[in-house]
């Protein structure tokens, strides 16, 4: 299984993703510059975190018009896995590949902290090997991660199992205090209707080695390998 890490001007988690895929997961990975028109034959597209185009106008608003996003769109339309992390989630939401939008954090502060996530759906290849209700620890680092969608969209997402992760406390309870950025319904990650496109604000690539304080993030990538295994 080969991974492509898309790189925009202002991406800053691209090397972390590359490192984890290559050296921790042990899979093939290459960078794809945003001017490229294809993903070089990769099986999985990673849209990493950062501040693409300086977050000008809105986070992700300009990156989504980069040529590589057409390739990501085609990749997604073929049912292949796409994961957007943090700014990558914002880009995929702006591109309409994922539902909802990310607002300024309710506190107006940039939040850099460890959070706990409850896995709510096995519909994505990234979570199919993770038990429902499993609590994962990963860091967040964002100023605009406050998920918003309209109530009817939320009902649809719930019904289709498109809410993949919710912020919770270490015991898995979705307390108000655990929802650090004020997201609608504690949503930390959502997937497309078909389930192959996942976006989340927390950083699994920063929680993939014991020395980093958690290996829970690696499970998303391991789940992907398990999903692809015959």
């Amino acid at each position: 299984m080969r991974f492509a890490v898309v790189v925009f001007p202002g991406s800053n988690c691209d090397h972390d993703c590359y490192h984890v895929i290559k050296h921790v997961l042990g899979a093939a990975v290459s960078f794809v510059w945003h001017k490229e028109g294809d993903l070089g034959g990769a099986d999985v597209a990673i849209v990493p975190g950062g501040f693409s185009y300086g977050d000008y106008l809105r986070a992700g608003a300009i990156a989504r018009f980069s040529p590589v996003m057409e390739a990501v769109r085609r990749h997604a339309a073929r049912g292949r896995p796409v994961i957007g992390i943090c700014n990558g989630f914002q880009i995929l939401a702006e591109a309409g590949l994922l539902p909802g939008a990310l607002r300024r954090n309710a506190s107006l502060r940039f939040i850099c902290d460890d959070v706990w996530l409850r896995c709510e759906s096995q519909r994505t290849p990234f979570t199919q090997a993770i038990e429902a209700g499993q609590v994962l620890k990963m860091p967040i680092a964002h100023g605009e991660g406050n998920f918003f969608c309209k109530p009817d969209t939320l009902a649809e997402l719930e019904m289709n199992g498109q809410i993949v992760f919710r912020y919770c406390d270490p015991e898995g309870r979705t307390t108000r205090a655990a929802n650090l950025n004020g997201s609608t319904a504690h949503v930390a990650g959502v997937c497309s209707r078909e389930g192959n496109v996942l976006g989340l604000m927390p950083h699994p690539e920063r929680a993939s080695e014991r020395d980093m304080g958690s290996e829970d993030g690696l499970r998303l990538f391991q789940s992907l390998l398990a999903a692809a295994a015959p």
Binding site: A61, F65, G100, A101, F148, C149
Partner: peptide
């Protein structure tokens, strides 16, 4: 297309 996000 760009200046506003119609979702919000």
């Amino acid at each position: 297309q760009l200046l506003a996000n119609p979702v919000l």
